[in-house]
Amino acid sequence: MSTYVLGLITNRLGSAALTLLIVSFAVFFATAMLPGDTATILLGQAATPEAVAGLRAAMHLDEPAFFRFARWLFGLLQGDFGTSYVNNVPVAELIGARFVNTMRLAGIVTLFAVPLSLTLGITAAMFRGSVYDRVVTILTIGVISVPEFMIATSAVLLFSVYLKWLPALSFATDVDSFWQVLKIYAMPVITLTFVVSAQMIRMTRAAVIDTIKTPYVEAAILKGASRRRAVLIHALPNAVGPIANAIALSLSYLVGGVIIVETIFNYPGIAKLMVDGVSTRDLPLIQSCAIIFCVGYLALITFADVVAILANPRVR
């Protein structure tokens, strides 16, 4: 079995390189299609044709975009993310600290959201059709139906403006005690937990219910296994694949999709960096962020696939 898993991982590593290449080309063509380039965007309302031409030459943007892209790609192979067009700072330096911030926030949210979702999803499936199940369903959907910015804004109004318990801004840098960490991360983590948990809860519930119906779980129940035992021992292993996939999809959101939380709490992560890159047509920055998001996503889904195989050996 483990050789199969190893084979799958090797295979995935190979195809990951291909996926990254496709993404990179797609991002390049997309960026090239956007109106304006870095020089015109930087000059904004001051973009007279000669000013644009001058700046373009000074920034070495006058050679064909594809050459620049090819050079960047070649640099990446040697581990160099390139240099930002906009401020001449190495992209690795721009990304560095902010990437750590993003991973830290994602990690904390995962620690809360995954156990919470699994518990709620599995118990809701066990007591399917009960009042508990319905309450969990309505609350779950109710919570994600509220737009993210509204949850975040309400939390700030309540905890920062009226109660004055927590700071409204979450600068990741002002951390000097555990208490401080707790205060800074409380609101972003609550908001994101709300956002990512719903999908995991709902999918877990559905996948578990689906496997409860399979003949051998029914047989186990008929043989007198307790309901809890039937679900945990017999049904759950079969549901692990879809659940792991749902978790991976939800968590992938935490890598590149937390722009609203980053904006409202002023948290310096890489989602905002990517948006900056797009709005200034800063190709090396966009490309590097896209590659990071893509790697994160591929890692998560590969992990989900491996878990699925380990849980259900018949899947080969």
Binding site: T153, V156, V161, A168, L169, T263
Partner: peptide, 19 residues
Amino acid sequence: FFAISDDNARVNALLSGDI
């Protein structure tokens, strides 16, 4: 000095005493 691009978030940061 920094920027908070969301208008509400900026006002709330002021009202909460952060800025």
